[in-house]
Amino acid sequence: SEEEIREAFRVFDKDGNGYISAADLRHVMTNLGEKLTDEEVDEMIREADIDGDGQVNYEDFVQMMTA
């Protein structure tokens, strides 16, 4: 549901600035027990970053979650 997606976005957007940065993503993945290299984190950001601004905004996140 849209509310679940919004809630998930809030979990990833640690600093609440409306964007998921590589640092935000790394933090959440580490908490989930996933040890990722910087390259892996950057690749995840690139794949999710639809508009190419280097971070994942809510619209990018929705597209990723509903793809």
Score class of each variant (00 low, 15 high):
residue 38 D to R: 12
residue 37 T to I: 04
residue 19 Y to M: 12
residue 55 Q to M: 14
residue 13 D to W: 02
residue 7 E to F: 05
residue 5 I to T: 02
residue 35 K to C: 12
residue 8 A to R: 06
residue 35 K to E: 07
residue 49 D to L: 13
residue 57 N to P: 10
residue 53 D to T: 13
residue 52 G to E: 13
residue 8 A to E: 03
residue 67 A to F: 01
residue 4 E to G: 08
residue 62 V to R: 03
residue 27 H to I: 09
residue 54 G to Y: 05
residue 32 L to Q: 03
residue 58 Y to N: 00
residue 19 Y to P: 00
residue 2 E to A: 14
residue 43 E to T: 11
residue 65 M to Q: 03
residue 32 L to S: 03
residue 20 I to F: 02
residue 33 G to H: 10
residue 15 D to L: 12
residue 54 G to K: 03
residue 20 I to V: 06
residue 5 I to L: 15
residue 42 D to C: 08
residue 59 E to S: 06
residue 32 L to W: 10
residue 19 Y to A: 04
residue 40 E to D: 07
residue 42 D to K: 06
residue 47 E to C: 14
residue 55 Q to Y: 14
residue 59 E to M: 08
residue 47 E to F: 15
residue 49 D to C: 12
residue 5 I to F: 09
residue 20 I to A: 01
residue 6 R to G: 01
residue 64 M to R: 14
residue 30 T to I: 12
residue 39 E to I: 12
residue 14 K to R: 12
residue 31 N to A: 14
residue 59 E to C: 06
residue 63 Q to R: 14
residue 62 V to E: 01
residue 2 E to G: 08
residue 49 D to I: 12
residue 27 H to F: 13
residue 31 N to P: 01
residue 20 I to D: 00
residue 50 I to N: 05
residue 23 A to H: 13
residue 60 D to A: 15
residue 67 A to I: 08
residue 27 H to C: 10
residue 36 L to M: 10
residue 8 A to H: 06
residue 50 I to K: 14
residue 44 M to A: 04
residue 3 E to G: 07
residue 42 D to P: 01
residue 65 M to S: 02
residue 22 A to Q: 10
residue 27 H to M: 10
residue 7 E to R: 07
residue 47 E to K: 15
residue 56 V to M: 05
residue 21 S to C: 08
residue 16 G to Y: 04
residue 46 R to C: 06
residue 5 I to G: 01
residue 52 G to D: 12
residue 43 E to V: 09
residue 9 F to Y: 01
residue 11 V to I: 10
residue 65 M to N: 02
residue 39 E to H: 12
residue 22 A to E: 10
residue 52 G to T: 12
residue 55 Q to L: 13
residue 41 V to G: 01
residue 26 R to V: 14
residue 6 R to A: 03
residue 4 E to P: 03
residue 17 N to A: 06
residue 31 N to H: 14
residue 6 R to S: 02
residue 18 G to W: 02
residue 15 D to V: 08
residue 18 G to K: 02
residue 5 I to K: 02
residue 28 V to F: 03
residue 5 I to C: 04
residue 1 S to W: 15
residue 34 E to N: 15
residue 23 A to W: 07
residue 5 I to Y: 12
residue 16 G to K: 07
residue 18 G to C: 03
residue 1 S to F: 14
residue 1 S to N: 09
residue 53 D to Y: 09
residue 21 S to R: 05
residue 2 E to V: 13
residue 63 Q to K: 14
residue 11 V to N: 07
residue 56 V to A: 03
residue 6 R to F: 04
residue 59 E to V: 06
residue 40 E to N: 04
residue 43 E to A: 15
residue 11 V to F: 11
residue 1 S to A: 08
residue 56 V to P: 00
residue 43 E to L: 15
residue 3 E to F: 10
residue 67 A to K: 13
residue 61 F to T: 01
residue 42 D to A: 11
residue 31 N to S: 15
residue 24 D to S: 04
residue 34 E to H: 15
residue 65 M to E: 00
residue 53 D to S: 13
residue 63 Q to G: 07
residue 47 E to P: 03
residue 2 E to S: 12
residue 16 G to A: 06
residue 42 D to I: 09
residue 49 D to T: 12
residue 51 D to Y: 12
residue 53 D to H: 09
residue 62 V to H: 02
residue 10 R to V: 04
residue 49 D to A: 13
residue 46 R to H: 04
residue 26 R to D: 03
residue 31 N to I: 14
residue 40 E to P: 02
residue 58 Y to K: 01
residue 45 I to M: 12
residue 32 L to G: 02
residue 63 Q to Y: 09
residue 43 E to M: 15
residue 35 K to Y: 09
residue 50 I to V: 12
residue 18 G to M: 02
residue 14 K to Y: 14
residue 52 G to Y: 07
residue 17 N to G: 05
residue 27 H to S: 07
residue 35 K to N: 11
residue 28 V to W: 04
residue 23 A to V: 11
residue 46 R to I: 05
residue 38 D to S: 12
residue 9 F to M: 05
residue 6 R to I: 06
residue 40 E to T: 06
residue 20 I to N: 00
residue 53 D to F: 10
residue 61 F to N: 00
residue 24 D to I: 06
residue 63 Q to W: 07
residue 11 V to A: 13
residue 21 S to V: 03
residue 58 Y to R: 01
residue 10 R to S: 05
residue 61 F to S: 00
residue 15 D to P: 03
residue 60 D to H: 14
residue 50 I to E: 04
residue 4 E to K: 14
residue 32 L to I: 10
residue 32 L to A: 03
residue 31 N to W: 14
residue 8 A to D: 00
residue 43 E to W: 13
residue 51 D to T: 13
residue 19 Y to D: 01
residue 28 V to D: 00
residue 27 H to R: 08
residue 49 D to S: 13
residue 60 D to S: 15
residue 47 E to D: 13
residue 33 G to F: 15
residue 2 E to C: 13
residue 56 V to H: 02
residue 20 I to E: 01
residue 16 G to V: 02
residue 8 A to Y: 07
residue 49 D to W: 08
residue 57 N to L: 13
residue 2 E to F: 14
residue 29 M to L: 15
residue 65 M to P: 01
residue 33 G to L: 13
residue 36 L to D: 01
residue 48 A to P: 01
residue 47 E to H: 15
residue 27 H to P: 03
residue 56 V to I: 13
residue 50 I to Q: 09
residue 39 E to T: 08
residue 20 I to K: 00
residue 29 M to T: 02
residue 60 D to K: 15
residue 45 I to K: 02
residue 28 V to S: 01
residue 19 Y to V: 04
residue 42 D to S: 09
residue 12 F to Y: 12
residue 28 V to T: 02
residue 46 R to G: 07
residue 42 D to V: 07
residue 17 N to F: 06
residue 9 F to I: 02
residue 17 N to E: 04
residue 23 A to Q: 11
residue 61 F to V: 14
residue 51 D to W: 13
residue 61 F to C: 04
residue 36 L to H: 06
residue 28 V to A: 10
residue 55 Q to R: 13
residue 34 E to I: 11
residue 23 A to N: 09
residue 57 N to D: 03
residue 36 L to S: 03
residue 8 A to W: 10
residue 56 V to W: 03
residue 48 A to S: 07
residue 47 E to W: 15
residue 19 Y to N: 03
residue 2 E to Y: 13
residue 57 N to C: 13
residue 55 Q to I: 08
residue 29 M to F: 07
residue 9 F to W: 05
residue 63 Q to D: 05
residue 19 Y to L: 11
residue 30 T to E: 12
residue 32 L to D: 01
residue 66 T to R: 09
